[in-house]
Amino acid sequence: MSAMLHTLSEPAPSPEAGTPGAHDAAELHDRWAQFVAKELCSFSIRARGERNFRVSAWTRSEGGFVVAHFTTVAGRAQLERTPTDIRRDSRDNYCLYLPLQGEHEIQQCNRDVVCRPASLTLLTTGEPYLQTKRGDNDTLYLLMPRAFVDQRLTHGEDICANVVGAEHGVGRLAMDTIASLCREAARMSSQEFLGACNLAGELVLLGLSGAGDLTSNSRSIRASNLARAKRVIRMRMADSDLALEDIARECGLSLRYLHDLFRDDGRTVREYLQGERLHAARRMLERAVAGAATVTDVCMACGFSSPSVFSTAFRRAFGVSPRDVARRARPPQP
């Protein structure tokens, strides 16, 4: 990315212009999605059609860091970053959310949280996520390169989609620093901006993880390899023929080293793979519209070899059958 300041704005309509129509709002949603895809990462947008949608946005970038300020009016929408989006743009970074107004519901890494003002929430753009914007929003963002985070944290994904309060302590210091950085970004030289982003990133990671998770270079290599293996598993878990040798090969690791990484993390590779498949299946069952997907469909979509194997593993993990979960998710019949 360049070091230039990029902006997207839409002036409020004049009284003579009247209320914007659905076509105007849809066009502006498309422009907004294209702007975010260029500056942060691509995603699929499912807007709810407010006719008076308005947006103002700017970003500043340098050396893989991006600071951004997005303000939306009547911006209720769902933004989904899918595996297809990830493959298309290959963006694999970490992005901090700092809401000033409004709420974002975030679903990633089997976690579902609500990000509110005076809080910090980290996402990774290398993993699928679902973001629900509930209305008017005013939010600051700090995008950090994956290498920057992996060199400082042992398990970066483990702190994603977790809300950390920013009312006091290091969290408050990180929040104030990001706000100041956004205010002053346009006036900084490239060197000043990059240095300020590094300092802000250090504070953010300290506020999100605590000093105990900050790591040395030797440990960060293993953490980075483990994170890469987990990403490969999550991206390919729908393949029922996925073998551990395939995972090791794609990561450029030996099979023995792969086993060592997961053993040190407290579980086997197979346990992690099955856990991710089961959690993905449960989410699909809970969100499926009645009749849209059967238990067998979900079983096959999540990489299980047969419905019986799937049902047994599901009941063992959650204490309930897949059919019961699907039945509870369906709206009651009138």
Rank of each mutant, 00 (worst) to 15 (best):
M284L: 11
H259W: 03
L285D: 00
A281E: 03
S308E: 13
L261R: 12
S321V: 04
E276G: 13
S311G: 05
R277W: 00
A288Q: 04
L261S: 11
R270K: 13
S308V: 09
A313K: 14
S308M: 14
H279C: 05
D297A: 15
A290C: 07
Y272H: 09
S306I: 00
T294W: 11
T312P: 01
L261A: 12
R267W: 12
E276D: 13
F318K: 07
Y272D: 02
V309A: 15
C302L: 01
L285A: 01
V269P: 07
A301F: 08
R287N: 08
C299G: 06
F304C: 03
F318T: 01
L278K: 10
Q274I: 12
V320D: 09
R267G: 09
A313V: 00
T312W: 07
F310Y: 11
S305D: 07
V295R: 10
T268V: 04
R316G: 03
F318P: 06
A280H: 06
C299L: 08
S308R: 14
M300H: 15
H279K: 12
G275W: 10
R283K: 06
T294K: 06
E271M: 01
S308T: 10
R263A: 10
A313E: 13
L285E: 00
T312A: 10
A288P: 08
H279R: 12
L273Y: 00
T268F: 13
D264P: 04
A280L: 08
G319F: 00
R287K: 14
A317Y: 09
T294L: 04
D260M: 09
T268C: 04
F314K: 01
A280T: 08
S308Y: 11
R316H: 15
S311M: 00
T296F: 14
T296C: 11
L261T: 08
R287W: 11
S311T: 06
C299V: 05
S321R: 09
A281I: 01
G275Y: 03
F318N: 03
G303L: 07
F304K: 11
L261G: 08
R315M: 09
G291N: 01
G319H: 05
G319S: 11
R270V: 12
S308N: 12
G275C: 04
F310M: 13
L278S: 13
S306F: 02
V269T: 09
M300E: 15
S311P: 02
R316F: 04
V269C: 07
R263I: 06
A280M: 09
A292F: 04
G319R: 08
M284K: 14
C299W: 05
G303W: 03
Y272V: 03
D297M: 12
Y272R: 06
H259G: 15
A313G: 10
E271S: 06
D297L: 15
R315P: 07
A293V: 02
E276H: 11
G291V: 00
V298H: 03
E276L: 09
A288H: 07
T296D: 15
T312H: 07
S321W: 02
